[in-house]
Nucleic acid binder design. Structure first.
Length: 508
RNA sequence: GAUUCCGUAGCUCAGCCGGUAGAGCACUUGACUUUUAAUCAAGGGGCCCUGGGUUCGAAUCCCAGCGGAAUCACCA
C-alpha cells in the first residue's frame, strides 16, 4: 500500500497519540448539547445557556499562535470558531494535551468534542472558548482544504482551492460533502422535497407502500430493462422499469390511495438527465380523474417549492419559475398547432410522416402514429414550456394504460407536466376496462412486431386483476431527480444523486 | 455510439517552440495568549494517467489505450 508523505505523518501521529494513552477511536458516546448553527442563531450576551455548551465535529482549520489557538469546528449544521488556550485545557503542570496533542498530533479532518462557553472575540467572531477537549476519531487522509475570503470590494466570498473535479467529487462523495457545504445543501433540499410530499399525501390518508423491484414481466412503461436471474426458481427476473401495474393491483385490492417512492431501472443511455437508476414517486387515488389530479399536483408542488426555497418562485438559471397554481392547460394538438401552425388532429400516419418531413424531423419506419406525434411535440414544443404547463389529451396510440377520452375520439385522458422545457410528471385517468386494456396491450404487441423495442409487454396477471374490477382511478408519476434539479437549480442529474453511476474505478 | 477538450505535488493550477519540474494553499520544524485565506523564518514532498514510437534526450511531439467533462443522438 502506497502512502503519501502526509498519510505517513498522520499514521505516525496516531501512534504517538496511542503512546500517550489516548484512545484515538473511543467507543463511548459523546453527548453534544448544541450545534454550530444553533449557537449562531440564538446567541445573546449573558445567556446562561451559552455558558456551558458541548459540541462535536471535524477540526477544519487551526491557527496556532503560541500558547493559544483558533480552530474551526465543523458539525452537521456548519462551522464555528473555537478558542483553545494552553492553560485552560491544561490547568496543571502537564501541558502535553495542548503542546503535543492539540498543536502537533491533531490534523485537519479529525473529529473532536469540546466543552466550553460562547463569547464574541474583539473582532466580533462568535467563538467557543474551550475548557475541555477530546479526540473522538482520527482522520488518516488529508482533506482538500477549501478556503474562502471575503472580498472587501464586492462583499462576496471568494473560494480558493475548491474541490471541483467532477470525477473525484462523484467517486468520493463523502469528501465532496465534507468540504463543499453547497453540495450538502442540495441533498438537504432533496430530502425536504420528499418529506414534504410524503407529509402531504399522508395528511390525505393515502398509504405509502412498497412493490416488487424484481419483476417477472417488466410492465408499466416503455424502456429496455436490466435482466437478472433467480437461481432457486431458475427463472429470469427484471429490475422494474415502472411500478404502475403493481400499484393498480393494490387499488383493485381496495385501498383508496396508494403511493410509492422508489428506484426504477432503465438500461439505456447516461447523460446529464439520465442515470440507469432513478427515483420516481407514483400515486394512485380511487374515484378521481385527471382533472382532479392536476389540482392536486398544483397544491403539492406549491407546498414543495415553499418548503424548499421559502417561495413559490424558484430561480432556475436565468428564469424565475412560479410553482403557484393554477398552471396553464393546453391539449397536445393545440400545443403543436401553436408552435408549428399545423393542425394534425385529423391526420393519419401517412400525413404525419409528411409533416415530419416538412419540419425536418427524422423518423423511422417502425414508428406508429403516436410515436410520430411525440417526435413532433418533442422537437417543436417542449423547449418552449418554461413555466409549469399541463399538456393534455394524448393520442391513444402513445398511451396503452390510460382511459379513452370521455368526449374526444382517438385521445386518452392523460396529462404531462412540463417545467423549464422538461417533462417532470405524467398522469392519467387510469384505464380500468379490462377488455379495452387487453386490446391496447395487443396493439403494443403489434408495434413490437414492427420493431418498436419500447412497446409495452402484456401482463396477464394484471389483466386478471382488472377483470375483478378496479374503481375509477387517477394515477400520477413524478421524476424526483428532475424535480430536485429544478428546485435546486442544478443542470446535471449527477449533482442531485449521492452516488451517480460511474465506470469502475481503476485500481492503481 | 460520434465530435471536441482535459489528465503534472494532498487541493487548485502554471510549465508543452523537446535538455528528466514550479507557484499558492496543505504538510514538517521553529517563533507568537483574540486570530480569521492569521503572520514570519526555514524545510520536505512528484512512475508529469498507462503503453508504444520519433529522438542523443519526451511532462512537452506522434500513435494506441484507460479515465473524466462538454455537445449531439436514444431514453425519464
Amino acid at each position: 500500500m502506497h502512502l503519501s508523505e502526509q498519510e505517513i505523518i498522520r499514521r505516525d501521529n496516531l501512534d504517538k497519540i496511542r503512546d500517550l494513552g489516548i484512545d484515538p477511536y473511543p467507543a463511548e458516546l459523546f453527548e453534544v448539547t448544541t450545534h454550530a448553527r444553533t449557537i449562531k442563531e440564538n446567541f445573546t450576551e449573558g445567556d446562561p445557556v451559552m455558558q456551558d455548551v458541548v459540541l462535536a465535529g471535524r477540526l477544519m482549520m487551526n491557527r496556532v499562535m503560541g500558547k493559544a489557538s483558533f480552530g474551526e469546528l465543523q458539525d452537521t449544521t456548519g462551522r464555528i470558531q473555537i478558542y483553545v488556550s494552553r492553560d485552560e485545557i491544561c490547568p496543571g503542570e502537564d501541558k502535553t494535551l495542548y503542546n503535543d496533542v492539540y498543536k502537533k498530533l491533531l490534523d485537519i479532518g479529525d473529529y473532536i468534542g469540546v466543552r466550553g462557553f460562547v463569547f464574541l472575540t474583539k473582532t466580533g467572531e462568535l467563538t467557543v472558548h474551550v475548557k475541555e477537549l477530546r479526540l473522538l476519531s482520527k482522520s488518516l487522509r488529508p482533506l482538500p482544504v477549501v478556503k474562502t475570503r471575503k472580498n472587501e470590494a464586492t462583499g462576496e466570498d471568494e473560494v480558493y482551492d475548491a474541490f471541483t473535479d467532477p470525477e473525484q467529487r462523484y467517486r468520493q462523495r463523502y469528501v465532496d460533502l465534507i468540504v463543499n457545504p453547497q453540495v450538502r445543501q442540495i441533498f438537504l433540499k432533496r430530502s425536504r422535497i420528499i418529506t414534504t410530499m410524503r407529509a402531504f399525501f399522508d395528511a390525505q390518508g393515502w398509504l405509502e407502500v412498497e412493490t416488487p423491484i424484481l419483476q417477472p414481466v417488466h410492465g408499466g412503461a416503455a424502456a429496455r430493462p436490466f435482466k437478472t436471474h433467480h437461481n432457486t426458481l431458475d427463472m429470469p427476473l427484471y429490475l422494474r422499469i415502472a411500478n404502475e401495474l403493481y400499484l393498480k393491483r393494490l387499488i383493485v385490492g381496495g385501498y383508496d390511495g396508494v403511493y410509492e417512492f422508489g428506484k426504477m431501472f432503465r438500461n439505456e443511455g447516461m447523460d446529464r438527465t439520465h442515470n440507469p437508476e432513478f427515483t420516481s414517486m407514483e400515486i394512485y387515488v380511487a374515484y378521481k380523474d385527471y382533472h382532479w389530479m392536476m389540482e392536486m399536483v398544483e397544491t403539492c408542488l406549491e407546498q414543495v417549492a415553499v418548503a424548499v426555497n421559502g417561495n413559490t418562485v424558484v430561480q432556475v438559471g436565468d428564469k424565475a419559475i412560479n410553482f403557484a397554481g393554477p398552471y396553464r392547460r393546453i391539449s397536445m394538438y393545440e400545443a403543436i398547432e401553436e408552435y408549428t401552425g399545423i393542425d394534425i388532429s385529423e391526420m393519419d400516419e401517412a400525413q404525419l410522416r409528411e409533416v415530419c418531413k416538412q419540419l425536418h424531423i427524422p423518423v423511422e419506419a417502425s414508428m406508429g402514429k403516436g410515436k410520430l406525434i411525440d417526435e413532433i411535440f418533442g422537437e417543436k414544443v417542449e423547449d418552449h414550456l418554461i413555466q409549469p404547463t399541463y399538456i393534455t389529451d394524448y393520442p391513444i396510440e402513445m398511451t396503452p394504460l390510460a382511459k379513452k377520452h370521455r368526449s374526444k375520439d382517438g385521445l386518452v385522458e392523460r396529462f404531462e407536466l412540463f417545467v423549464n422545457g422538461k417533462e417532470i410528471a405524467n398522469a392519467y385517468t387510469e384505464l380500468n376496462d379490462p377488455i379495452d386494456q387487453r386490446a391496447r396491450f395487443e396493439e403494443q404487441l403489434q408495434l413490437a412486431a414492427r420493431g418498436d423495442e419500447e412497446a409495452m409487454a402484456l401482463d396477464e396477471d394484471f389483466l386478471r386483476a382488472l377483470e375483478f374490477g378496479m374503481p375509477p382511478t387517477s394515477g400520477l408519476g413524478i421524476g424526483i431527480d428532475r424535480l430536485t434539479m429544478l428546485m435546486t437549480d442544478q443542470h446535471s442529474i449527477q449533482e442531485v444523486l449521492f452516488f451517480p453511476q460511474m465506470r469502475p474505478e481503476k485500481q492503481g
